[in-house]
């Protein structure tokens, strides 16, 4: 794609748009790239899907502290208080 940024550059830009308030206005060269590149369009949808899904599961990650670890911490609290 002559004169347009590469997929490597565009994916970096798309990621930054998720984080940086100043990156929200998309340069036309990036828009042009996305018009002709279905792979990067998919990439954008997917990193947004990942963000939404991560927030859905954030509190559902099924981990309990193993009893032996809990016991070690309990002992440390008693000794150090």
């Amino acid at each position: 794609m002559m004169g347009l940024p590469s997929c490597r550059e565009v994916t970096g830009r798309l990621s930054e748009e998720l984080d940086s308030p100043s990156a929200r206005r998309r340069p036309w060269r990036v828009r042009m790239h996305l018009m002709v590149c279905s792979a990067c369009r998919l990439y954008e949808r997917q990193i947004r899907w990942i963000r939404a899904s991560m927030r859905t599961v954030a509190e559902r990650l099924p981990v309990r502290m193993p009893p032996a670890r809990r016991e070690r911490i309990r002992r440390a609290l008693r000794e150090n208080k």
């Binding site: 997929c7 792979a39 990439y43 949808r45 899907w49 939404a52 599961v57 559902r60 099924p62």
Partner: peptide, 25 residues
Amino acid sequence: DGAWRAPPTHWGDDPLALNEAEAFA
């Protein structure tokens, strides 16, 4: 040249369903 070696494949359009949350986690 900065192009994808293996471009992303389609994931479909569905959001993560709540009943998938545990497996996804």
